[in-house]
Amino acid sequence: MTLSPIRKVFQGIADRHQMFRMFDRHAGRPNRCADDDGALYRGEWFELGETCHDYMFEILPPLFMRGDMFAMREFLTGSITSIFFTLSIDGRIRHFHGYCDLADKGSCERMRAAIVERESRPVRAMTREERLEHIWSSTADDYRGYAGERWPDADRGKRTVMFFAKPGGTTCKLLNNLTDAEIAAKLPVHLRYLPDALAA
């Protein structure tokens, strides 16, 4: 499973519980201990509240602080760590978390620019990819997973979600194969009818 470029993975402002769940959205992946899956995390970002931002700032002394951002001292995998941003967007102070690869010079600045560009759009909209990432982020661990041995070889390791196909019945589907109607059914009501965005 390869993800990477900079992408928003949750719509809305994450509360403390959601924040900690999203810190390791890929915890259940196959071969967790065998692989360096930096591409799964690199580029992920989401919004959080000021209280959560300040809580994370006070946990450990930051690895570094630069104006509107600070980095966590502990690395998630390889050279990837949490970067917390305090950004003024359209006259409002907002807080964000993103995973940046510190071995990639300029990754923090590119993340900041991508967040500001995405959140400065005049109309709220979501790409198909953002809808799928929000579904993955907000689905309980018991109802999401990874395609295993019963799946065709080409699908093994891809993300799956449980879908209620009929009254009293469920089926497991590849996340990327959900239809527009299935995506809408999985999203909270306030996100179902947002316009489509061409790029995140």
Rank of each mutant, 00 (worst) to 15 (best):
P62A: 04
P62W: 05
P62G: 05
L63E: 15
M65K: 15
M65I: 13
R66S: 12
G67T: 05
G67E: 08
M69K: 10
M69Q: 09
F70S: 12
F70G: 11
F70V: 06
A71N: 13
A71P: 07
A71R: 15
M72A: 15
M72K: 15
R73E: 08
E74F: 05
E74W: 04
F75C: 05
L76M: 09
L76G: 04
T77D: 02
T77R: 11
G78L: 03
G78K: 09
S79D: 10
S79T: 12
I80A: 05
I83S: 11
I83R: 12
I83T: 10
F84Q: 12
F84G: 02
F84N: 11
F85K: 06
F85M: 08
F85Q: 03
T86Y: 01
L87I: 06
L87K: 08
S88W: 03
S88C: 10
S88I: 06
I89H: 01
I89G: 02
I89K: 01
D90E: 14
D90Y: 09
D90N: 15
R92M: 02
R92V: 00
R92K: 07
R92P: 00
I93G: 04
I93M: 12
I93Q: 15
H95I: 02
F96M: 06
H97T: 01
Y99P: 00
C100S: 10
C100A: 15
C100L: 03
C100M: 06
L102K: 06
A103F: 06
D104K: 15
K105I: 10
K105N: 11
K105C: 11
K105M: 12
G106P: 03
G106N: 02
S107K: 08
C108A: 13
E109Q: 09
R110G: 00
M111G: 02
M111Q: 07
M111E: 03
R112I: 00
R112F: 02
R112L: 04
A113F: 08
A113W: 05
A113M: 09
A113I: 01
A114W: 07
I115W: 01
I115N: 02
I115G: 02
V116L: 09
V116S: 05
V116Y: 03
E117P: 01
E117Y: 12
E117A: 14
E119F: 09
E119A: 05
S120L: 07
R121E: 10
R121M: 07
R121G: 11
P122C: 08
P122R: 13
P122H: 14
V123C: 08
A125D: 04
M126W: 14
M126I: 07
R128E: 03
E129Q: 14
E129V: 06
E129I: 04
E129K: 14
E133N: 13
E133R: 12
H134P: 04
H134I: 00
I135F: 08
W136V: 03
W136K: 12
S137N: 03
S137R: 04
S137Q: 01
S138H: 11
S138D: 07
S138E: 06
T139G: 05
T139Y: 05
A140C: 09
A140D: 10
A140K: 11
D141R: 14
D142K: 14
Y143R: 13
Y143L: 10
R144K: 12
R144L: 01
G145N: 03
Y146T: 00
A147C: 01
G148F: 06
E149L: 14
E149K: 14
E149M: 13
W151T: 01
W151C: 07
P152N: 04
D153V: 09
A154Q: 10
D155S: 10
D155Y: 07
D155R: 07
R156W: 02
R156T: 00
